[in-house]
Design a protein around this nucleic acid. Structure first.
Length: 932
RNA sequence: GGGCGGUUAGCUCAGCUGGUUAGAGCGCCUGCCUUACAAGCAGGAGGUCGCAGGUUCGAGCCCUGCACUGCCCA
């Protein structure tokens, strides 16, 4: 009778045939949805030794397309989340996207440009509507890609940083900080992108070294014809805005000029010579022009000396009316003209090559212009009115070890802690206003009448100061990182104090790249600690610092580079598209590649050769399944009923079971333990290698080969033994699939359903329990290792003396230790080493074709002539190695200091090694002699 | 200029608080289509751990200097 549930797996593994189906199934069935637990549930969970595991997806930009960095990030988070979930934790992985102010606005502006339109023509409102439209249309692309990759997130909780509830949080945060006196507005030098026409933060500026020039310009001294003070500058065009020239007060060369007045060339303005410690005498001529409106250092100097600020450029970095005849010229055209004019007037001095670092806009690569403008800032170093710690101080305390050595937030790799602290210690106020249209509009209103500012939670109808109804809202929006910095609190409902907040805050872990360590990680810590300190803990008590943090651990992942270790970049054209690779090799293989290379702190050179290897691994698993299912079918045909009741439990094996059963159970436990240990410390590479080695090296190469011996379905066979073997095989395989499942979710899901012939005990393998390591039977591992050693020795010998593959040859074994595993497992040895008969001897072996180890001597008996030359070469090499090892051991053992100081176990081990080596050397010498 | 990494097999990388003969994958060589898998099986070759000192009974691992290289910040 044909079983209708019978699975007929295709011969080769084909990921495309299964992955889309499961990806869709996981989403449709809402498998990873987490209901907010009612009161008492968490306590029960904790009492049972489990915990809440909350992890926030670093929200990709709505403009984003999935790249390898995302895939690595998501693979790591998914492995951890699936692992924790299967271990019984309440695992919530929360997805969402970021509105990405500048990036998105640029994207839509570009689209408009292709239609010949500009946003200024459309007006703010319709432009913003247009961006929303764009977002609705394309904004979900990256999350769709994520779904395809099987990320086990709770899609029902998906957020967008401009959602209403998150916007409420942004507004509350702003108002509260304003009320606390920690947000201020003022005219300062900021980094200005002339293309984006907005201020950007220090972090959004990328510095690049560039070969430039240092020009010397002579400024005539008023009242001293023919006298000049020569300044050196890298930006001659800004001289039009000069208000002074500064020298170091200690610089003796310029002592006579102190207090003198200079005539600014080209402009004619009279400006003073001032002294300031900031000026370095050894740079250039030791005299610098002071342009407070166009340089951050000059701005500070101007403040110190009460100098005016003259802005000579507009928001597009073209010269303005203040620049006189240079007005409307682009900054570089102006530079050229200024230099020409100076030259013509004989005021241009030496011109030297000079390497300087210029800042470029992170987004559009335009050279940033330091610009004097009115912006909003967060005073991160300011003490609040009540005298508590500043934001930065809180953010430092959250990471630094306290008196007891405890850290509220732990970084992996650890060195990022230092980098973070270094930055946080030297942090400047954060410019949070952006002159964009797409983003959270700053909730501040300017009064036309009294010029004062009203900041409010609800849109005000009139000025809070004078009551005038003539108020207009601030046009600036907030830095994108302000809203994403609030995510750990806002996604759980803050500023409302919700059940979600009680249960899920602080989150457990943040997995992200170092590139947004300051942008995002640092801001989340600042804002998270700041606002949650006012939220009572779940039990109503005051929240301790360790419970104010947005996450307890931060795992900083590596950068994915190309196979040549080059950074991937569009301009280099070496970007590897993960979707394309996934289509070629399957998601599981790509995930496994990334995991196996994800060693903390080391960049990943992504190589397709590795991926090919892991696709082969997937195929291996697939075929192991085919083999097993084939035997299940054979059993069915032979009328053997399968005990399926144990399926889903960790297999156990006792004295009565054959060696391979006891051994594979031990190895399974061992692997499960290794994976647990590795994942607990973010050693994805070790974890992946452990399951790989277990499945391929142990399960397939040894266990399956031996189990073939037991799967005898003939009439004459021992039915009970066959049945038992098949049960252990199935049980172990099922367990192995679960072990593999966080790494290769698709393949394991498919095969797991197949094992149960679709009569599954759960909707998904992802909802079953992870293998719980039990005690490992070390004795059977040791015994089996010797059997393996013997089999390998025989195989090698057969090769050496040229025994044909098909021929089974007799062997003679002399065990030099209790050789029970040999005699008890003759059939195993016979099958795996292709041995006809095994003769156990007690005396020394003579003749050729002998191998020796400390545990046994073995000889393959075969009439074929040994290749004496090759054999001699091998033995000579062996002997040399042994001599070296012996010498090394003896050197130590003859050293009284070593014997006195080294631990007992080391000395004992070395003694045994020395003795073993001596015996082996003896045998090797004898073998060489016999060769003649 | 300040800071942080890296240098281990042909390639890409592991190597835990210093401890017995330094590992993996890929590649390479040899032999096998052994009815789960040639995306496979079996056997093998290949490393003075960047260089020079030092500490130690003992150094790939700790210290100092140097060389090369990458990144972050200013």
């Amino acid at each position: 009778m044909e079983n209708p549930n019978r699975r007929e797996l295709p011969k080769a593994y084909d990921p495309t045939a299964i992955e889309d189906r499961w990806a869709e199934y996981w989403v449709r069935e809402r498998l990873f949805h987490v209901e907010t637990p009612e009161a008492g549930v968490i306590e029960k969970l904790r009492a049972a030794g489990h915990d809440v595991f909350t992890i926030l997806l670093p929200p990709p930009n709505v403009t984003g397309r999935l790249h390898m960095g995302h895939m690595l990030n998501q693979t790591e988070m998914d492995i951890l989340t699936r692992w924790r979930r299967m271990r019984g934790d309440l695992a919530l992985w929360l997805p969402g996207t970021d509105h990405a102010g500048i990036a998105t606005q640029m994207m839509v502006e570009r689209q408009l440009a292709s239609e010949g339109k500009k946003r200024q023509q459309m007006g703010r409102e319709s432009f913003v509507e247009r961006v929303w439209e764009w977002k609705r249309h394309y904004g979900g692309a990256i999350l769709e890609q994520m779904k395809r990759l099987g990320a086990s997130v709770d899609w029902s909780r998906e957020y967008f940083t401009m959602d209403d509830n998150l916007s409420v949080a942004v507004r509350e945060a702003f108002v509260r900080l304003y009320e606390q006196g920690l947000i201020y507005r003022g005219a300062y030098i900021v980094n200005w992108c002339p293309r984006c026409q907005t201020a950007i933060s220090d972090l959004e500026v990328a510095h690049e070294e560039q070969q430039g020039k240092l020009w010397e310009i002579r400024y005539p001294v008023v009242g001293a014809p023919g006298e000049f003070l020569t300044v050196a500058t890298t930006r001659p065009e800004t001289m039009l805005g000069d208000v002074a020239v500064a020298v170091n007060p200690m610089d003796e060369r310029y002592l006579p000029l102190h207090g003198k007045i200079l005539k600014l060339p080209l402009v004619g303005r009279e400006i003073p010579v001032i002294t300031d410690d900031w000026v370095k005498s050894d740079f250039g001529t030791g005299a610098v022009k002071v342009t407070p409106a166009h340089d951050a250092n000059d701005f500070a100097m101007g403040q110190r000396h009460g100098l005016p600020q003259i802005n000579v450029m507009d928001e597009t970095a073209h010269m303005n009316a203040e620049a006189g005849t240079y007005a409307r010229l682009d900054r570089y055209a102006a530079r050229k003209r200024v230099l020409e004019d100076l030259e013509a007037q004989g005021l241009l001095g030496a011109v030297r090559d000079h390497v300087n670092a210029i800042g470029k806009c992170d987004r559009c690569k335009t050279v940033v212009e330091p610009r004097l403008s009115t912006q909003w800032f967060i005073a991160v170093n300011k003490q609040p009115k009540d005298g508590g710690a500043s934001m930065a101080e809180l953010a430092i305390a959250a990471v630094k070890a306290d008196g007891a050595g405890e850290k509220a937030i732990r970084f992996t790799p650890e060195n990022y802690e230092k980098i973070y602290l270094e930055w946080m210690t030297n942090i400047y106020d954060w410019c949070i206003s952006r002159q964009l249209w797409w983003g959270h509009r700053i909730p501040a209103w300017h009064c036309v009448a009294c010029k004062q500012i009203t900041v409010a939670r609800e849109d005000p109808a009139k000025c809070a100061h004078c009551g005038s109804a003539e108020i207009t809202q601030e046009t600036d929006v907030l830095d994108t990182w302000f809203s994403s910095g609030l995510l750990p609190v806002s996604v759980f409902g803050w500023p409302r104090h919700t059940r979600n907040f009680d249960v899920f805050y602080p989150t457990q872990l943040l997995v992200t790249g170092f590139d947004i360590l300051f942008f995002w990680v640092a801001r989340m810590i600042m804002l998270g600690c700041w606002f949650s300190q006012d939220e009572p803990a779940a039990d109503g008590s005051k929240r301790a610092l360790k419970d104010t943090v947005p996450f307890r651990e931060v795992y900083i992942h590596a950068l994915v580079r190309d196979a040549e270790r080059q950074k991937m970049s569009k301009t280099k054209g070496n970007v590897i598209d993960p979707i394309e690779i996934v289509e070629r090799y399957g998601t599981d293989a790509v995930r496994f590649t990334l995991a196996s290379m994800a060693s903390p702190g080391t960049d990943i050179a992504f190589s397709e050769a590795r991926t090919e290897g892991y696709r082969a691994f997937a195929n291996k698993i697939w075929n192991a399944a085919r083999f097993i299912f084939m035997n299940v079918e054979k059993a069915r045909e032979a009328g053997i009923t399968l005990e399926r009741g144990t399926l889903g439990q960790m297999p156990a094996a006792g004295e009565s079971d054959p060696i391979e059963a006891r051994w594979i159970v031990a190895e399974l436990n061992h692997a499960a333990q290794e994976v647990d240990e590795a994942l607990a410390t973010y050693r994805f590479d070790d974890a992946a290698n452990a399951v790989y080695q277990f499945f391929w090296g142990d399960f397939c190469d040894w266990y399956l080969e031996i189990v073939k011996l037991r799967l005898d379905f003939s009439e004459a066979a021992d039915r009970a033994a066959t049945e038992q073997a098949l049960a252990t095989l199935l049980q172990t395989f099922e367990e192995a699939l679960r072990l593999l499942s966080p790494f290769m979710p698709f393949l394991t899901e498919e095969l797991w359903h197949a094992i149960y012939e679709d009569d599954v005990p759960a909707k998904s393998i992802a909802l079953t329990r992870y293998p719980q390591p039990a005690e490992i039977d070390e004795a059977v591992r040791r015994d089996f290792a010797r059997v393996q050693e013997l089999i390998v020795a025989v195989r090698a010998l057969r090769k050496d003396i040229g025994v044909e593959e098909k021929v089974a040859a007799p062997i003679r074994v002399r065990a030099t230790w209790d050789g029970l595993p040999f005699t008890a497992n003759l059939e195993v040895i016979q099958r795996l080493a292709r041995v006809s008969t095994v003769e156990t001897v007690t005396g020394a072996l003579t003749g050729s074709g002998i191998r020796s180890t400390p545990n046994f001597d073995v000889q393959v008996v075969y009439e074929r002539k040994v290749d004496a030359a090759a054999e001699r070469e091998r033995l000579t090499k062996d002997l040399a190695k042994q001599e070296k090892a012996l010498a090394a051991a003896e050197r130590q053992l003859n050293n009284p200091a070593f014997l006195a100081k080294a631990p007992e176990a080391i000395v004992e081990g070395l003694r045994k090694q020395e003795a073993d080596t001596r015996v082996l050397m003896e045998k090797t010498r004898k073998a060489l002699e016999e060769l003649g």
